[in-house]
Design a protein around this nucleic acid. Structure first.
Lengths: 190, 190
DNA sequence: GCTTCAATCTTGCCAGTGACTAGATGTTCC
DNA sequence: GGAACATCTAGTCACTGGCAAGATTGAAGC
């Protein structure tokens, strides 16, 4: 942070994006105000518009960045259960991104950058499901959706505060690993 | 709808609530505007405030109503899998309620009416989990969280449009029943 | 070095919104 | 029929998103 503010900010795009993530994490996407973000960055109220066009554009950028990070986080998971663990970990570490990503009415779903990142994530998510013992048929697809649902449900319930009682002060990842093991363990008990 | 509008609306509270559900279903909670709802109901812009105090109050009422309907929908489910099916059915039939219920930053979580309804739903959700073969210990709690996560994940992915490919034109309930059967069937295979 | 040009940022403006206040209207109950 | 109350209206204010016009800066070409 340079105190000698010049006319040009330097990296306003990242500054606004980061401030937006802070606000979303703390108060949810509904509390986002472009003017507030501009004030935090120390620029005029119309400056962010040049980088994001409008409020929806900003949220689209958040979602796109989120899907990119998501794809990276899921890559190279050894098995289905571990992929679920990384899914939960991503949600816990990037709650703002995660929240926006799965509320399509907040952003422009047809944005090219977003579509590309989402496709990358989709590939990373699907990889390995077809390598299950049940083969690559309809069963495998159902198994994939079940695994996705389990991880996604745990992640969203966690972020909405609905698991605070069940998880307690334990690491959410570990709780998920424990409950996921009997469900689709590659070599677990049962 | 009476065309002979009188000074008193008759049931403005329900009219605003219903209009709100329509908007949320179509465009999400972010698109809610109290003034728009007032226009739809044919009353002045400040009329809804008497029934809901403010925007947050309206969303609190939506969440409270949702938890009440939710508790009713879950009551008397024969087994854990069927409870999951009803969970998914509720989300599909009441998408607006469901969306708001699980975004606590939208409403006042300490509202008495809401807390009462949520407690009812919580009881209905937990009932039967302790009656599982694994007993009432920590395993049962994990199984309960797993079942909840599975149903909740499927429901939210469904509402966010992420399962349109996997579900196709089939009934979501049936798809869920199919994928849930091997996971925690009361008397299924394995 | 100087000019041109595009990118970035500022200022000013407008319509729409949420929230508040004071007052008007209708209803209920005695 | 009149008082007390719930409900609705009208007016206002601060704030927001979005747009347009202009100012400032940095970079590329000559």
């Amino acid at each position: 942070m340079s105190s000698d503010r010049t006319y040009h900010h330097g990296d306003l795009r990242r500054a606004v994006l980061s401030a937006a993530l802070d606000v979303i994490r703390a108060e949810g996407p509904a509390a986002l105000s472009l003017r507030d973000l501009a004030r935090r960055a120390g620029v005029s109220h119309a400056a962010p518009a040049h980088h994001f066009k409008d409020r929806t554009g900003l949220l689209t950028a958040v979602a796109a960045e989120g899907y990119g990070l998501f794809a990276d986080a899921l890559a190279d998971a050894p098995d289905l259960r571990e992929r679920g663990v990384r899914y939960v970990r991503f949600a816990a570490e990037h709650p703002a991104h995660f929240q926006v990503m799965f509320q399509p009415d907040l952003y422009r779903a047809d944005d090219p950058d977003l579509l590309a990142a989402k496709e990358r994530a989709s590939v990373a998510l699907r990889a390995g499901v077809t390598g299950l013992p049940s083969g690559g048929g309809d069963d495998a697809r159902l198994t994939g959706v079940a695994a996705w649902s389990l991880a996604h449900g745990f992640a969203t319930l966690l972020l909405s505060g609905n698991l605070s009682e069940a998880v307690g002060d334990r690491d959410p990842e570990e709780v998920f690993r424990a409950l996921a093991t009997p469900v689709f363990a590659p070599d677990g008990p049962n």
